[in-house]
Design a protein around this nucleic acid. Structure first.
Length: 426
DNA sequence: TCTGGGGTCCTAGGACCC
DNA sequence: TCTGGGGTCCTAGGACCC
């Protein structure tokens, strides 16, 4: 059944320097200037404009280490504003869906789009069309790579990033080896730090070499994932497009502290808040959790004092979405793993074994359950209206000395009327 | 002084059963 | 005296992704 007519054609659309591009949307003055966006707590650099990349600022670099370059070159710095980025992301994805509803939203700034319906000759022009419509409708610049498999479209995208047109198609190209030869092994999708080390030890330095190595060898010495990657480099699709958005299986809320924390009471406050946050999230998706894990850790970078990290998982008797129950379990877990005398950098909670609320076994439900349900509902609607944590639990505390640092926030919120820009007409 | 946060999947190994 | 082996299920930890 396979003729060129039916060859899979997968486009990977990737927003360029996404967080930076979002900040630029509302701040035209920084369009041509070097810009970086910082992670939570203003810890690391997680998005860089091309100008900032040229200055040698590296991805994931701690902010304080890059500060010299930043000050010297007047680099514009922003704390991350995820509600803004999430909103812009939804606009981009909505725009992409107009070309084909067969789309996999892969991350906040990336999507795979099935273009198999177009002929080999058309597909690159379609890519250019997608790119220009997204730019026009959302203001976000993108790069687009098109190929027969997801892994190859990642590579095409990687190349497109450096092209002026922003679009690269590998469809219909005979001699793909000469292209893959220039792709470093660590730049292949699915090859991380450990695999890079392993491949280099075995004299595999680029994508071409990985493509041409025997499958049996890879499977034997690594895992099925690695052999899948190699197959995909050969143009054989092994990783399907995931069109329908599946329900998540776990939910994590964790933060580093703005300032190291030693006191149990303060850890308890933050764990309470993270639990409220997490349970609100799963309720909004109609999920219930089978268990909760609490974890805490000291900084792995500062070795004054010894590193300590621990976690505790607690199973609920019956899967739940009840904030009060969830908080109670988490604090009990925290008591078990807390040790006096350490300066904690981070705590967090993980709700896992998530399943649909409708599937809940109602054998033990009672009128008390109904009361709790309606309490949760009113907490959620109040917080939705007046901002998260308008309603909280007493153990959540009110001082929040441990709160995050966010010194460089642009304070843009596309969901807040007070942040609407003013347009003057003359 | 200051080093993010949130996910998924695979594998090895233990527990248990017959 | 002789002390198996195969199957399944679960979990923790690791590796990867953005």
């Amino acid at each position: 059944m396979s003729s060129t007519q039916y060859t899979k054609k997968i486009a990977l659309i990737d927003c360029n320097s996404f967080y930076v591009s979002c900040e630029r949307l509302f701040n035209p003055k920084i369009r041509k200037k070097p810009v970086v966006v910082l992670s939570n707590n203003d810890g690391c650099i997680i998005s860089r404009s091309n100008e900032a990349k040229t200055l040698g600022i590296k991805m994931g670099e701690p902010y304080f280490k890059a500060r010299n370059i930043i000050v010297k070159n007047n680099v514009q710095v922003f704390s991350s504003n995820y509600s803004l980025y999430g909103d812009i992301s939804r606009r981009v994805m909505r725009t992409l869906k107009r070309f084909n509803s067969e789309i996999e939203v892969y991350s906040i700034d990336e999507a795979f789009l099935d273009l198999s319906n177009f002929s080999d000759d058309e597909v690159e022009d379609v890519g250019k069309e997608v790119r220009s419509v997204v730019l026009q409708w959302t203001g976000i610049p993108t790069s687009i790579g098109i190929a027969k498999t997801k892994t190859l479209s990642k590579i095409a995208n990687h190349i497109a990033k450096k092209e002026k047109s922003g679009v690269v198609s590998l469809i219909g190209i005979e001699d793909i080896d000469s292209i893959l030869e220039k792709v470093k092994i660590e730049d292949v999708w699915g090859v991380g730090r450990q695999l890079t080390k392993f491949y280099i030890k075995n004299d595999i330095y680029n994508a071409k070499q990985l493509k041409n190595i025997s499958n049996a060898w890879i499977k034997k010495s690594s895992s099925v994932l690695s052999s899948r990657t190699a197959m995909e480099l050969r143009g054989i699709p092994c990783i399907d497009l995931e069109i329908q958005d599946s329900k998540r299986k776990s939910c994590v809320v964790s933060r580093s502290f703005g300032k190291k924390v030693e006191i149990f009471q303060e850890l308890k406050e933050s764990v309470t808040n993270y639990c409220l946050n997490a349970s609100e999230k799963i309720r909004s998706e109609s999920l219930i959790a089978k268990s909760i894990t609490v974890f805490l850790k000291t900084s792995p970078f500062q070795n004054r004092g010894i590193y300590y990290s621990n976690s505790k998982t607690i199973d609920f008797p019956i899967a739940t979405d009840n904030s009060i129950e969830i908080v109670k379990a988490a604090i009990n877990g925290l008591k078990d793993i807390f040790k006096r005398g350490y300066k904690y950098q981070k705590v967090g909670v993980i709700l896992s074994g998530l399943s649909n609320l409708e599937n809940k076994n109602n054998l033990f439900s009672s009128s008390k359950d109904e009361k709790i349900k309606s309490l949760m509902r009113s907490i959620d609607s109040t917080n939705c209206r007046y901002g998260r944590s308008a309603l909280s639990l007493a153990s959540g505390g009110i001082n929040k000395k441990w709160n995050m640092r966010r010194k460089h926030s642009s304070k843009i919120d596309t969901a807040d009327f007070r942040c609407l820009p003013t347009i003057r007409t003359s």
